[in-house]
Design a protein around this nucleic acid. Sequence first.
DNA 1: AAGCGACGCAACCGCTGTGAT
DNA 2: CATCACAGCGGTTGCGTCGCT
Length: 318
Amino acid sequence: MGRAPCCDKANVKRGPWSPEEDATLINYLEKNGTGGNWISLPQKAGLKRCGKSCRLRWLNYLRPDIKHGGFTEEEDKIIFSLYKSLGSRWSVIASKLQGRTDNDVKNYWNTKLKKKFFGKPIHQSAINNSNMATTSNSTQHIQLSSLSDHVNNSSYGLSNQNYSSTLPFAQVHGQDEGIVKTEQPIHHFPLPRLMEPSEFDYNIVSSSATSHQQEVSGSGVVPLLTTSSTSSIGFSDNYMSYSGGNNNDLSATTTTVESYDDGFLMGFGLNYPYSSYDFLQDFSSNFHEKTSEEEVVASNSTNGNSAFYASFTSSVTN
DNA sequence: AAGCGACGCAACCGCTGTGAT
DNA sequence: CATCACAGCGGTTGCGTCGCT
């Protein structure tokens, strides 16, 4: 036996609320409260509405403590941070923001923040190229979701693939600008899904490596890298590129970011003394700090996070 | 000015969790 | 323990508005 409907849908009004209905609901709730029963409330209040509709209208719009209007940069950061750790638990996320409703946060995420942090949708042509493992002079674009398959099927198996090519803006913004030595091969990695710390296998430790060579064995994310070289990462239109090297201008433990019209380049030290997750946090906050004024650039930050895992779960030899 | 698509947001739908019986 | 009713939640839809052609 199915559950009885919460109201007689044929006899309730649907669609947008009129100011009169709003006033009726507010008046009733101010005088009587919900009485712990939304289903019977509309009848008592004299509204031809479903109880669920009344509840939603009150909670999402009419409540006096609701904050209407644009979200602040601080709220953006909180939402993004919580989304990373909690996923789409909008009610929990909203509870951390004064005066915001789950519906508000959800809508805001779906319409604005998702684009801001995850960037533009990936073009189909990139998907078609997602399994390429060739060497060429053109940048290989590898689709975001493709690494999930790599990860699932081959123990983070990029070890036999050397995505060497030249990143276009690395050629333009080369050594003179202190970020990438263009004579070095640039490796392009697929971007994996974002992994949570709980998914890491902290028992896996990367072997030591000289510059230009990182050897990662087994499956799982490597929590600590021991190579002493510094390298650079570039992002553009949802794609990430990596360039290994010995650029001494870059700190071994802090990231540096250079942004361009079509993406950014980030330098980082591979002997970062913390876990990859800590590095990720640093990476993320550093990136946000450095690029917060450029939405196009900032939109790639989460891909950056993901990409970072990709680089650490792969073997790179050149 | 009209048509059209993109966007934003309010509202709805249906499932799940929970407490009462 | 099983069932029921309701609240709460997240995903989705529908519609008004805006901007571009």
